[in-house]
Write a protein that binds this DNA or RNA. Sequence first.
DNA 1: CTGAAAGCGCTTACAG
DNA 2: CTGAAAGCGCTTACAG
Lengths: 342, 342
Amino acid sequence: MAARKKPGRVTIRTVAADAGVSVAAVSKVLRDAYGVSAELRSKVNASVAKLGYRPHAAARGMRGQTYTLGVLFPDMRNPFFTDILAGINAALERTQYQALLGISQSMAVIETALAEAMIDRQMDGIIVVGPRLRRDDVADIVGKIPTVFVGHHQPDATAYDTVNNDDQMGAMLVVRHLAETGRRNIAFLSLARADLDDTVVTAQREIGYRRAMAECGLERQINILQAEQSAREVQAAVRHLLSSRNKPDAVFCWTDFIALEVLSAARELMLSVPRDLAVVGYDNTAYCDLAQNALTSVDQSGQVLGLQAARLLVERIKGRDKAEHFLVNPRLVVRASSQHIA
Amino acid sequence: MAARKKPGRVTIRTVAADAGVSVAAVSKVLRDAYGVSAELRSKVNASVAKLGYRPHAAARGMRGQTYTLGVLFPDMRNPFFTDILAGINAALERTQYQALLGISQSMAVIETALAEAMIDRQMDGIIVVGPRLRRDDVADIVGKIPTVFVGHHQPDATAYDTVNNDDQMGAMLVVRHLAETGRRNIAFLSLARADLDDTVVTAQREIGYRRAMAECGLERQINILQAEQSAREVQAAVRHLLSSRNKPDAVFCWTDFIALEVLSAARELMLSVPRDLAVVGYDNTAYCDLAQNALTSVDQSGQVLGLQAARLLVERIKGRDKAEHFLVNPRLVVRASSQHIA
DNA sequence: CTGAAAGCGCTTACAG
DNA sequence: CTGAAAGCGCTTACAG
């Protein structure tokens, strides 16, 4: 509808004419390609500044790079993702790359569609956080575009990089802490998933939970509940758990928001936290610090994860083809919700 | 670095050859352009499906549309934005358009840079939520790309559309509710902003707050505090407020997260909510419902805002040039944090 | 209704 | 070190 041909448009050709050099020379300066003299470079840069030239990303996309990286998050709700994004942006700050986001609303079909959309748009690479992709979709996507997964445990993968916190260890830190402070009936509230392969973070946390429970001699108390991420489902699961005959004296939740729901349900059921019930979350988001929550949680350094993911992706775009798998150690942050029982 | 020329790439030319028609014909079918027979259309569609053809967005961007819409949010922290995004996605579901996000981290320079990046990438239009842009940047951007602002009050703007909830009315609902339930020292905790023009939502809420205070005969109790969005700043402001000599008996916060900080500070200062202090937020996010918060808040129907914004943007891209300004009515949701004092 | 051809703004071998 | 030319995959007048 809109007229495309803007008469005043400044293109690489305008710049070349102004600087008195060839179009190819301008292109090289713009991309910091090798083989241009300092003199030519400064002439071009002067013209670029003077004319306010901005490269046309679509045209670049047809030939070379778009300097655009896609970042896929399952949702916008989890404040932990803010930290990851901050890390990504920090890593990209002094580069030509620009990150653009897609939010899949935790649905595998949307996630796949978004990844395809990013491929169609010739993005140079993508970072997928907490992937919900099916296994063959993963294979398909990583074959088409450089990919880094955050929160996807596959340390033997060769076709893509991964960045993770050690989710097994995180869960073990929690269980040990709870056991040491006198809890025995420690339940784990996990995320419901159709396919339960071990790559997902919740599965890793389950494994860590089981291992630590065994280690503490509590294997008979192992109690895993799964719930969707919707408020209604979580509430039902929590109510069920807290009203059951062998009521737990501690609940470890796979993510903070679920733990906040547990705190809410406990209050409604007149249970005192931490006296009757210890509650622990994961991610150490900003909400943990609020006095009404005072939630013990596991910090997984979202910023570091994001930073590493961006760094690895740029390396991969620049040609590295040997996979790298980065692991960061989690750290337990104890607050009142799991305080020692006197 | 990567070899561009993928030999097996399916282009519009491959499809044309397979269907036995011209490249131009395929292009027309793809864009639902006029002037193609049903027979040709079905031949082309069959080949598209058979070959798994996907249009190359960068190539499209060089000539026509990219079918990509940019959505700019100030941050990922506010769960209210999730609702707006859900509305946008719902509106776009059956269309060819794809929304891609940028997060400005509440910084005007990043917001400007992201808008420019989206323009460089030939996006067809952008939705800017809670803009922090300077006035001349707004003029510059709307001149280059169809734009809809959400949370930017400028009902006389002709160059772009706006979608808002009636922030003045929202604030008035809150003040009236608090006054009716016996509060008098009602403070307003607003966002610090360098330039205080009336277009921003917090300024509108301030106006509504002042109007309702006057209406209730409380103009001498008007008390506005401003704080940055950082946890530390908010805590300092809240402590200052709650420890001051003429301590308020109610605090109205410009957004829920700030109100949660107030609840936290009140608890640390041994103030009982709602007995000693009523607390009210804005946005009615999921956290309000948790029993430990039970936060009264103003619902502004984020989904509706997002839906309208996407609808208006697509209309504008398709050629409408008369500005539209959509306003939705806010609704007060009363919870325990502002309950009647006996 | 259908198609041949020009051209969008870049990058990339390649020749000089 | 520098530049002329081909070409990326589409869309758009335009002619038939």
